[in-house]
Nucleic acid binder design. Structure first.
Lengths: 131, 131
DNA sequence: ATAGGTGCAAACAGTTTGCATGTAT
DNA sequence: ATACATGCAAACTGTTTGCACCTAT
């Protein structure tokens, strides 16, 4: 899967722009953040196109969604490896956390099969803890 | 805090019914599930009252909200102890999971303070794994 | 009597969808 | 040329809010 692979059936400026914005961002972006970013070079870009393209990118395996409880969906490159998130309760910023607590299978009763998990940590970030 | 403590300033049939529905349910309920349940004995009950009462119950410490990523809020008694959730990817049912993976503080860099966390396990439940 | 609560409808955010227009192929 | 993509607006879900009416105190 190279950068030149088409998304869907056709290459369009919108799809290229949206993919680039997500792939070059250093944090997961919401749909409206993507609209703002990509809309800079593509006046008239609509939120529906962002959602349609993001869904296409997810089906194609380029992008995955990050869903923090009570937060709008964010989108990030799918190849970022397994990680979780830390959300600062003071400033609201969301940080990526590299590690992962294992042994989660042990938590469920017999007959249940754990295939995946989501962990969100809450607390105060570096900046907010200091002040 | 006894069962007779008022919620807000006044006791009303709606508030009593909504509280009882949440406190006697054996799984967390969405606002519309609460409306359906409590609405049985209170025809005309509105969804706005459910939300207003649930928010009041949360402020009062009776109830807490369960927010699974991408799911509508659910509400459960606040005194249920620390636990997490397992959501079946086949049938969609949500189960409570008693245990908890510790050592989550180790995942964040120096300067970050972990105050809480949320863990959601995904997989197949007992019934769906069998078939 | 009156502050506070309720129901309804409107408003709101996030997301999806229908449709006529536009465009990559 | 034509099937696919876009933009807009409408629809939809979950949640909150404004307001006139109602009720526990």
């Amino acid at each position: 899967m190279s950068t030149m692979d088409p998304i869907g059936q056709r290459q369009t400026a919108q799809r290229r722009a949206i993919r680039e914005v997500i792939l070059t961002a250093r944090r997961p972006l919401t749909a409206s953040e993507i609209l703002t970013e990509a809309g800079g070079s593509l006046p008239g870009l609509g939120i529906a196109t962002v959602y349609r393209t993001v869904n296409l990118l997810m089906e194609a395996g380029w992008v995955k969604s990050v869903r923090l409880p009570g937060e709008p969906s964010r989108f990030e490159p799918a190849d970022g490896g397994h990680h979780h998130f830390f959300q600062c309760t003071a400033c609201g910023l969301t940080f990526r956390v590299a590690g992962c607590a294992g042994a989660l299978e042990a938590l469920v009763p017999d007959g249940f099969h754990v295939e995946g998990h989501e962990i969100v940590l809450y607390g105060t970030c570096q900046g907010c803890s200091r002040s």
